Measured scan of single mutants.
Amino acid sequence: MQGVVKVNSALNMRSGPGSNYGVIGTLRNNDKVEIIKEVDGAYEIRFNGKVGYASKSYITIVN
């Protein structure tokens, strides 16, 4: 499943599905991501070869 990031500035990509996990990357508006699955209000995603988590509130599914 594919998604597009929709933010005003940037969205943190984290090592786990919550803000208490470390930041492993930054997503920008209109970045395209692969959605692997939904976990606790976040999506597990793949972006630029990395797998991490981002809030589903800022990712629009575009299948």
Rank of each mutant, 00 (worst) to 15 (best):
Y43V: 02
Y53M: 02
G49V: 02
K50Q: 11
V33H: 00
N63C: 13
S9E: 13
P17T: 06
N29F: 08
A10F: 15
Y21T: 14
Y43R: 00
V7T: 15
K6E: 06
F47I: 08
E38C: 10
I24G: 01
V5M: 02
K6L: 08
N29P: 10
I35K: 00
D31E: 07
G49L: 03
Y53F: 12
A54D: 01
Q2N: 10
Q2K: 12
K6V: 11
I36N: 03
K32E: 10
Q2H: 13
G18D: 10
V7N: 07
N20Y: 09
N63W: 08
V62D: 09
R14D: 03
R46E: 08
I35L: 03
G41E: 10
G22K: 14
I61P: 09
G22N: 14
G18N: 12
V23G: 03
I61A: 06
V7Q: 03
V23M: 04
D40G: 12
G49I: 02
V5E: 01
I59P: 01
D40W: 08
K6T: 12
V4M: 09
I61F: 05
A10R: 14
G3R: 01
E38D: 06
L27I: 05
V4E: 05
T26V: 15
S15M: 08
L11M: 10
V33T: 00
S57F: 13
V4H: 05
N12G: 11
G22R: 13
K32P: 08
N29S: 07
V23S: 08
G25W: 05
R46S: 10
A54T: 08
L11I: 15
K56Q: 07
V62K: 05
K37N: 12
V51P: 04
S55K: 10
V23Q: 05
I35N: 00
S19C: 15
E44H: 10
I59A: 00
I24H: 02
Q2M: 15
R14Y: 15
S57V: 13
V7D: 03
R14I: 06
V33G: 00
I45V: 09
G25S: 09
G18I: 02
I45S: 00
N63Q: 13
G18F: 03
I45G: 00
N20I: 09
S19N: 14
Y21H: 12
S55V: 09
M13F: 10
K37G: 15
F47T: 03
A54W: 01
V5Q: 01
V62C: 12
T26I: 15
Y53R: 02
S9G: 15
M13Q: 02
E34D: 11
R28H: 14
G22W: 09
I61N: 04
S57W: 12
I35D: 00
M1W: 13
G16N: 06
Y43W: 08
V5N: 01
G49A: 04
D31V: 05
V5W: 00
K37M: 09
L27Y: 00
G25F: 06
Y58G: 14
G22C: 13
G49R: 03
Y21A: 15
R28Q: 13
S57I: 14
V4C: 10
V5I: 08
R14M: 11
S19W: 12
V23L: 06
G25E: 13
S9A: 11
Y43T: 01
V33K: 00
A54H: 01
G18K: 07
K32V: 15
T60D: 12
D40Y: 10
S19A: 13
E38L: 07
S57M: 14
I36Q: 04
I45Y: 00
K32M: 14
G52A: 05
K37H: 08
R28Y: 13
G16R: 05
N63H: 13
E38T: 06
K50C: 08
R28F: 12
A42C: 15
Q2R: 12
V39L: 11
K6Y: 06
Y21P: 04
S55N: 14
